[in-house]
Design a protein around this nucleic acid. Structure first.
Length: 677
RNA sequence: GGCGAGAUAGCUCAGAUGGUUAGAGCGCAUGAUUCAUAAUCAUGAGGUCCGGGGUUCAAUUCCCCGUCUCGCUACCA
């Protein structure tokens, strides 16, 4: 294995439009923190980089909705999240932000370097332009009627009601969210990063040189590479972000995914004038901690950016995690379905380590996992309290009782003692091995096994009995139990830094280095320890019930919100209404459009003609079930090509609250082509 | 629809280049113990290893076809 002189750890920059929740923590920040703390304990030269990702359209929209500036939005979440991370003990070397000057400079320079090297492809395309506001409209700045579900408030990139992803020119009646005016199509110039040019290089770098990457990461990369890469735009028409630093690029900023990873570099610059040795020296090991949704950016796009620039190193590994669910449901910021870090810290003061433990023990390392409050409670009560806390407590209490807190001399050891002393050394290796391979769950379990060993040792040796018959022997037993305790402060330090600090203070011991782990003379005879408190406290049912009720209330609120009927649309004149030609028709044939999920191709008899309509209803109707049914259609809708098939008209559907589609048909059979009015 | 990942004890997960009884932790049951936050220790019960085919002397492991979950992606008039 290659030896490295120093480490550069990055953690995905959280987007500054919402607070941090347990999904972020379990997927990215807890693992990266454990890894960083471990490396620091080894005495390695390591920096851990993170910060707020503060650009992009959703932030500008949130600002507009709230009537504040984007800067105010990001200021709010930046400080909230920065503080929450600090309070939670995530040991970043720096928590920076992409709206600061260093970043503007760095990102700008980076773009310019690529620009001057001729790495970009320039292309013009047609995009919506707002004449009144005099600017191009990013997807999220255009709203209109969703062609699929009729939701009038669909965004240019997605309808949030039916989940359909859209492109702006699909919207019916598009309007600008800035001025409300109807936008026009205009030509605009953008810069593209030609990923395709680097495809061959990426294939070798990932598929051949990094077979050791996690299967989910490797598989996803392979999938992208096999499908072939396309150039990707690196600029957008927007006024919030890093301006494109070339002539004639007024009103254009760097696209947020181009801008954000450079944030790792600028944060490093901000941290140290020595930043180049971390980013440009082959002897630095760079590791990106991210969630699975970020794989393509960190394994394909950012490496291409770095490679194209030419002077930067590439990540040695990208240990992406899967997602964490909450009580059997996807975590969702917009649905308020989350455990928010800042609220947890308030609800469970002093219990950072409990959450760190629960999230690490149940981290979604190989597949999506579920966080439940019951599991959280069980982990605390049955593991932290019962195994780790209890062992520490009984050892320290006995030492205080028997020796007034002075570490006793270790006398002659018996066979079992020797076995245990050997075991202690083994733990160092196995925990270390798991950590080096980013298997944090496994590492934590091994650390806990050391506490288990301690409990078993005490149960076997029974010092509370032996003290009556052979007090000399008890000194040896307690000495060994204390050495185990000292070792616990080392192997648990990366996972439970708050508790281990407490424990060290009770032991009156120093902050050991990682390489002290396995030693059995960490506490010298005669060394004084203090009276212990409780390392962990039981969490009672009421506290858990309170949290569960909080979530139930959220669920109820969400249901109430979705049941609310969508607001009645703006009035239309009778004249407008009569322009829509709605008629009855009968389905003659139905078949699934190949290679699609939702599309059915229908041949229908409208009474006037036989025509083809393509409709996105395949998830709710089997072709056989719909043949022969009488339906209602919009007969005079402009024809449109869908998947190469010309569709003439639209089938009317009623959509239930849960999204289920139901045919709208006449009550009794009528002749085809009957006008519905 | 394409691609990727996953599916193993009640729960959370390991695992096997295919080979006699498939493992761990938690939970559960029984026993022991009382130094310790009713905490610990021992023992035990629990599994068509997602379903169906195939290859093989032998498949939970390899191949093919499905099902379900999650992600990326296409599509939705």
């Amino acid at each position: 294995m290659k030896k490295y002189k120093r480490y550069l750890i990055t953690s995905a920059l959280p987007y500054a439009n919402g607070p941090i929740h347990i999904g972020h923590l379990a997927g990215v920040y807890v693992p990266s923190d454990i890894y960083t703390r471990y490396l620091r304990m080894k005495g390695a030269d390591v920096i851990s980089i993170c910060g707020s990702d503060e650009h992009g359209v959703p932030i500008t929209l949130k600002a507009r909705n709230e009537g504040v500036t984007p800067q105010q939005v990001v200021d709010r979440y930046h400080s909230l999240n920065k503080k929450a991370f600090e309070d939670f003990g995530i040991a970043f070397s720096i928590y920076s932000r992409t709206s600061n000057n260093v970043h503007y400079e760095t990102a700008s320079d980076f773009f310019l370097t690529l620009y001057k090297k001729g790495e970009f492809v320039e292309k013009t395309s047609e995009q919506y332009y707002d004449d009144e506001a005099c600017c191009f409209l990013a997807d999220r700045y255009i709203m209109g009627t969703c062609p699929h579900c009729g939701n009038e408030n669909a965004y240019g990139d997605q309808c949030e009601k039916c989940g359909t992803s859209l492109s702006p020119n699909e919207l019916i009646n598009p309007h600008s969210t800035i001025s409300g005016s109807k936008p026009l199509l205009r030509e605009t110039l953008h810069w593209y990063l030609p990923l395709d040019k680097y495809e061959g290089w990426l294939k070798k770098w990932i598929l051949e040189d990094h077979r050791e990457w996690k299967t989910n990461v490797y598989g996803q990369c392979k999938s992208w590479l096999d499908q072939g890469l396309q150039p990707r735009a690196v600029s957008r028409d927007l006024d919030w972000g890093v301006p494109v630093p070339v002539e004639g690029a007024k009103g254009k900023v760097l696209y947020v995914w181009f801008d954000a990873p450079i944030g790792y570099i600028s944060a490093t610059k901000e941290l140290t004038p020595d930043w180049q040795k971390y980013w440009k020296d082959e002897e630095t090991k760079m590791v990106h901690f991210i969630g699975k949704d970020n794989i393509v950016f960190h394994c394909i796009i950012f490496p291409v950016m770095l490679k194209a620039e030419g002077s930067f190193i590439l990540p040695e590994n990208v240990p992406a995690n899967e997602f964490l669910n909450l009580e059997n449901d996807k975590i969702s910021t917009s649905r308020n379905w989350a455990v928010w870090l800042h609220e947890y810290l308030k609800d469970f003061p002093g219990k950072q380590d409990v959450l760190r433990y629960a999230l690490c023990a149940n981290a979604p390392e190989t597949k999506d996992n579920d966080f439940t409050w019951k599991d959280f409670q069980a982990r605390n009560n049955n593991e932290l309290v019962a195994i780790l806390g209890n062992f520490v407590n009984r050892t320290l209490v006995l030492t205080n009782n028997y020796y007034e807190g002075k570490v006793p001399e270790r006398g002659i050891t018996d066979e079992n003692d020797n076995l245990v002393l050997q075991e202690i050394l083994r733990f160092k290796e196995s925990v270390e091995n798991s950590l080096e391979n980013y298997k944090f769950r496994e590492a934590l379990k091994e650390a806990m096994n050391l506490a288990r060993l301690g409990n078993k040792y005490l149960a076997d040796a029974e010092p509370w009995k032996v003290i009556k018959s052979d007090p000399e022997r008890v000194k040896t037993i307690m000495n060994i139990a204390l050495q185990i305790t000292a070792n616990l402060t080392i192997v648990f330090e990366p996972f439970l830094p708050f508790s281990m600090e407490k424990l060290r203070s009770w032991l009156s011991s120093t902050h050991y280095s990682w390489d002290d782990a396995g030693k059995t003379d960490l506490l010298n005879p005669g060394h004084s320890i203090k009276k212990p408190g409780l390392l962990f406290e039981k969490i009672e049912d009421e506290e858990i019930t309170r949290q569960i009720n909080k979530l139930l209330a959220t669920k109820k609120a969400n249901e109430a919100a979705s049941a609310k009927t969508v607001q009645v649309k703006d009035p239309v004149t009778f004249d407008d209404f009569t322009r829509i030609d709605i008629r009855t028709a009968t389905v003659l044939e139905a078949e699934k459009v190949p290679k699609t999920t939702k599309l059915l191709k229908l041949k229908i008899d409208t009474g006037i003609d036989i025509r083809t309509i393509v409709s996105g209803i395949a998830e709710y109707f089997e072709p056989a079930d719909i043949v022969g049914k009488q339906i209602s259609i919009v007969a005079n809708l402009e024809p449109r090509k869908i998947k190469g098939i010309e569709s003439k008209g639209m089938i009317l559907m009623a959509e239930d609250n849960d999204g289920r589609l139901v045919l709208v048909a006449p009550d009794q059979k009528v002749s085809n082509g009957s006008i519905i009015k």
